[in-house]
C-alpha cells in the first residue's frame, strides 16, 4: 500500500505510544519494584537504605507467607484440573449438536462477565445461606473456605474456557473423523486419537489461563474469606496475592511485601513457562 520508508514511519507512529505506555506503566515500575525489594522503605520515594536480601529472608520467616505459597499451589492444581475437565466436557457436550446448545453456551459464559468482587459477595451470601444449616461459616472453617474458593473459581472460569474449547472442537477437520471412522475407530478412540491431539493448542491456552488466573487470584479471596480463620497468627485461607497486599499495606512490613511480590513473580514465570513448554510439545499439525 505504502512505499517502504512511509510504512516504516507509520509503523513508528503506531508503535511509539504503546511502547511509551508499556515502559511507563510496566517496565519502569517493574524495575523500580525489584530495586525497592532490596531496600528499607515506607514511602516509595524516600528509601531509607539498601538492605540486600534482608526483606527476602524476613519473607521466608513469615509462616503466613510460606503457608500461602503451598495453599496457592494446591489451589492452582485443583483449579487447573477441575476447570479444564468441566470446560472440556461441557464444550464437548455442546458441540455434538444437542438442542438449545447456543442458549447453554451463553448461560455458561455469563458468570465470566461479572467482576471478581461482585462474584465474591454473591457466593458469600450463597455459601452463608447453605452453611447456616450445618452450623458453620466459611470463615470459621478453613476446609469450607478452600472449597468455597474453588467452587467460585470453577463457576467463573469454566464458561470462558468452554468457549475456547468449543472453538477448538469446531476447528478439527471433519475428514479426520471420517477417515478414522472408516478405519473402524470407536467413540473413545476418536476422542483419544483424533480430538485430543488436535485440541492441544486449546488445551495449552486454557491451562495457561487457568494457571495464571488461579495464581494471581485476589479479589475473590479478599471478599470471600479475607484469609480467615487465623490460627496462631497464620492466615488459613490466604492466597499469595492476598498475603502480599496485606504485608504491603502495613508500612512496617511494606518492604517485605515488596520482596514477596518479586518472589511471586519468579514463581509464576517459572511455572507458566514450564507449562507452556510441556503442553506445546504435545501440539500437532493437522
Amino acid at each position: 500500500m505504502f512505499k517502504k520508508p512511509r510504512r516504516k514511519l507509520y509503523a513508528l507512529i503506531f508503535v511509539v505510544p504503546t511502547l511509551a505506555a508499556f515502559c511507563i506503566g510496566f517496565i519502569y515500575p517493574f524495575v523500580n519494584g525489584i530495586y525497592l525489594s532490596f531496600c528499607d522503605f515506607k514511602v516509595i520515594n524516600k528509601i531509607k537504605g539498601f538492605v540486600g536480601f534482608e526483606n527476602y529472608a524476613t519473607a521466608f520467616q513469615d509462616d503466613s507467607f510460606i503457608r500461602s505459597i503451598w495453599y496457592t499451589a494446591l489451589f492452582v492444581i485443583v483449579n487447573v484440573v477441575l476447570i479444564n475437565l468441566i470446560a472440556f466436557f461441557v464444550a464437548y457436550a455442546l458441540t455434538i449438536g444437542i438442542r438449545g446448545s447456543n442458549v447453554y453456551r451463553t448461560v455458561f459464559f455469563m458468570p465470566n462477565l461479572i467482576g471478581g468482587i461482585i462474584l465474591g459477595f454473591i457466593w458469600k451470601k450463597i455459601f452463608g445461606a447453605i452453611l447456616v444449616h450445618f452450623g458453620t461459616t466459611l470463615t470459621t472453617n478453613a476446609g469450607w473456605g478452600f472449597w468455597g474458593l474453588v467452587i467460585l473459581m470453577c463457576w467463573q472460569q469454566a464458561g470462558y474456557m468452554m468457549i475456547i474449547y468449543i472453538a477448538g472442537f469446531q476447528s478439527v477437520p471433519a475428514d479426520l473423523y471420517e477417515a478414522a471412522k472408516i478405519d473402524g475407530a470407536n467413540r473413545r478412540q476418536l476422542l483419544r486419537n483424533v480430538t485430543l491431539p488436535m485440541m492441544m493448542p486449546s488445551i495449552t491456552i486454557c491451562t495457561f489461563l487457568t494457571l495464571t488466573n488461579s495464581f494471581k487470584l485476589y479479589d475473590q479471596n479478599l471478599v470471600l474469606t479475607d484469609g480467615e480463620p487465623i490460627v496462631n497468627g497464620v492466615y488459613q485461607t490466604e492466597l499469595i496475592a492476598h498475603n502480599i497486599v496485606r504485608n504491603y499495606d502495613n508500612p512496617q512490613t511494606r518492604a517485605v511485601g515488596q520482596a514477596e511480590g518479586i518472589i511471586f513473580f519468579l514463581i509464576v514465570v517459572v511455572v507458566a513457562l514450564a507449562q507452556l513448554y510441556f503442553t506445546r510439545r504435545k501440539e500437532v499439525q493437522a
Binding site: T139, T140, P229, I230
Partner: peptide
Amino acid sequence: GVGSALTQYAAGTG
C-alpha cells in the same frame, strides 16, 4: 488474630 479467635470460639471451632 484476636478477632478470628473470638469468632472461632463463639462458633465452637476454637
